[in-house]
């Protein structure tokens, strides 16, 4: 594999976003977050820091929660992406977490909210799959689902900052759905 001329800084990729296939020619510099917001008009995923330091851009890629701001879109060719807009599935009904956030007033300005909710969806799946956290007792046997008490939820959602300070109600909303 040798190269005489500079490589093309663009590539064509195909993604499924919220169930819909998209084929796009992307600038290699484009991160998933900007692809969602700028190319697909899915602005529910938020840009809070653009450097993986706030969690507002959290989406699910192949079912796992990740920071969309740090993933180059070109690396995701063939991936399945779920954003806040797609959590409820096809129907009009919101996801139970969305409903719980609304009813518990688990937000104020709303800017971190989509990331909090997507993060919680991913986090609940991780705990169910037996992933431990920093606050899980190391003596707990591996491979079993980890029950989500308040301390577990707080630790696992710590990658999602909220400057309005809605944390206690976010934890309540998650407990309502998992409890």
């Amino acid at each position: 594999m040798t190269c005489e001329k500079p490589l093309d800084p663009h590539s064509e990729i195909t993604l499924r976003v919220n169930g819909n296939p998209h084929t796009l020619l992307v600038d290699h510099r484009r991160v998933l977050l900007d692809l969602l917001r700028e190319d697909l008009g899915l602005t529910g995923s938020k840009k809070g820091c653009d450097h993986g330091q706030c969690g507002a851009c959290t989406v699910l890629v192949d079912g796992r929660r990740v920071n969309g701001c740090l993933l180059l879109a070109v690396t995701l060719d063939g991936s399945e992406v779920t954003t806040i807009e797609g959590l409820g599935g096809d129907g009009e009904e919101p996801h139970p977490l969305q409903r719980a956030f609304l009813e518990r007033d688990a937000f104020q300005c709303g800017y971190c909210t989509p990331g909090q909710i997507c993060s919680a969806v991913g986090m609940i799946a991780e705990a169910a799959a037996g992933h431990p956290s920093h606050v899980t007792d190391p003596a707990e046997p591996s491979g079993r689902p980890v029950p989500l008490d308040g301390a577990e939820i707080r630790e696992r959602l710590s990658g999602n900052l909220c400057r309005c300070g809605a944390y206690p109600r976010i934890v309540e909303a998650v407990e309502e759905v998992t409890g």
Binding site: G52, G55, T58, S119, M123, G159
Partner: peptide, 12 residues
Amino acid sequence: LLAGASGQLRNA
């Protein structure tokens, strides 16, 4: 590993 970063970052 669990003391570092966030759940999202550790997934990537």
